[in-house]
Simulated assay, not measured.
Amino acid sequence: MVVSTKAIVISSLKYAESDLIVTCYTEVSGLKTYLLKRILSSKRGKLRTSHFQPLTQLEIVAFHKDKGTLEQIREAKVIIPYQTLHTNILKGTLVLFISEVLKNAIHEESNDVSLYKYLTDSLNWLDVNDEIANFHILFLLNLSSHLGFFPDHSTVEHSYFNLLEGNFQNKETNKYCKQGTLIEYFKLFFGINFDIMSQIKMHKKERLELLNLLLEYYQLHLHGFKKPKSVLILNQLFR
């Protein structure tokens, strides 16, 4: 079946001498993986290697067999040319981090228009803004809502956050209960958007601890989720 859809590139991997295997999150078909034959050696084809950088937003015409095999892309064009995401070193590292998170977190082929919109809105905001130190924290928190395990913050006034249960409690009930300054910072991220997140002032150490808290939360609630390797680079760049 020939499908025309918007798509976000999640990852690309060289295969054989001149092929690419590209995974995209598409607006109409969810997660899809494509084999792009001879793209690395062709100079006159309809597809360009530059189209398949991580998190590039495309309009594609693809052939979907929907049998769990590698699909084919016939045409692709960039629909949102980024100004800074692939040139700014800080944002480029965030791009690697986000692409790793999405690769680990999204496994369903069914489409989710709300998730697709959240991803595009987040990437477009990141591209044109500079106060981004807290971006990955808020991105992860809000992404968990679309993945089905957003924390219950109806009792956010309580001192403990239970990573396993995903809620706030007034006492410690298991080894996954955390309290202290870190949890007080965590509470500040509920109910805000990217435009005001820079008002939350944290030191590098606190931001790292909060990021690790969220990644541990993901590991508890997403089967097979692995801590992104790019975290190490991310922690070195943000202060």
Score class of each variant (00 low, 15 high):
134 N>I: 07
210 L>S: 04
179 Q>M: 15
120 T>N: 00
155 T>Q: 14
167 N>F: 05
135 F>N: 02
152 D>K: 08
130 D>T: 15
94 L>F: 05
115 L>C: 00
195 D>K: 04
192 I>A: 01
174 N>V: 07
157 E>H: 13
204 K>E: 13
94 L>W: 05
223 H>G: 07
104 N>R: 09
225 F>H: 02
184 E>W: 06
219 Q>G: 14
159 S>D: 01
131 E>L: 09
200 I>G: 06
221 H>A: 09
160 Y>P: 06
121 D>K: 06
152 D>W: 13
174 N>C: 02
231 V>P: 10
172 E>G: 12
154 S>G: 11
192 I>S: 02
148 G>R: 01
203 H>D: 14
104 N>I: 01
153 H>I: 02
219 Q>Y: 06
215 L>F: 08
98 I>H: 12
201 K>I: 14
180 G>N: 03
181 T>G: 12
135 F>T: 02
219 Q>V: 10
136 H>Q: 08
140 L>E: 00
223 H>F: 14
222 L>C: 04
149 F>R: 01
187 K>H: 02
186 F>S: 01
91 K>C: 00
137 I>V: 04
96 L>Q: 06
117 K>N: 06
191 G>A: 04
167 N>C: 02
96 L>M: 14
98 I>M: 07
89 I>Y: 13
224 G>M: 07
119 L>P: 11
113 V>P: 15
132 I>F: 13
90 L>P: 09
226 K>A: 07
195 D>Q: 08
158 H>N: 14
125 W>F: 15
140 L>Q: 00
186 F>R: 01
112 D>R: 00
157 E>K: 11
130 D>H: 13
210 L>K: 11
233 I>M: 10
172 E>V: 15
208 L>E: 01
180 G>M: 00
100 E>R: 10
161 F>I: 03
148 G>D: 04
122 S>E: 04
176 Y>H: 05
191 G>E: 03
191 G>D: 02
166 G>P: 08
155 T>E: 09
229 K>G: 08
87 T>A: 10
148 G>H: 06
170 N>W: 12
211 L>R: 10
229 K>P: 09
122 S>H: 04
176 Y>S: 02
160 Y>G: 05
118 Y>H: 02
214 L>W: 03
109 E>G: 14
207 R>W: 05
187 K>G: 04
132 I>D: 15
226 K>P: 01
101 V>Q: 12
116 Y>T: 11
171 K>A: 08
128 V>G: 03
188 L>A: 08
149 F>G: 07
125 W>P: 15
168 F>K: 09
157 E>A: 05
153 H>N: 10
152 D>M: 12
118 Y>A: 07
167 N>G: 01
93 T>Y: 09
114 S>L: 14
194 F>G: 08
135 F>L: 11
144 S>L: 07
177 C>R: 13
102 L>I: 03
124 N>C: 14
117 K>M: 03
126 L>D: 11
200 I>C: 13
91 K>I: 00
97 F>D: 03
216 E>G: 11
225 F>I: 05
218 Y>W: 12
196 I>F: 12
210 L>F: 01
165 E>C: 09
104 N>A: 13
105 A>G: 06
167 N>H: 02
197 M>H: 05
224 G>N: 03
205 K>W: 11
144 S>E: 03
149 F>Y: 08
176 Y>L: 04
128 V>L: 13
162 N>R: 00
212 N>P: 08
131 E>C: 00
130 D>S: 15
130 D>A: 12
129 N>H: 03
104 N>V: 12
113 V>K: 15
154 S>T: 11
146 H>G: 06
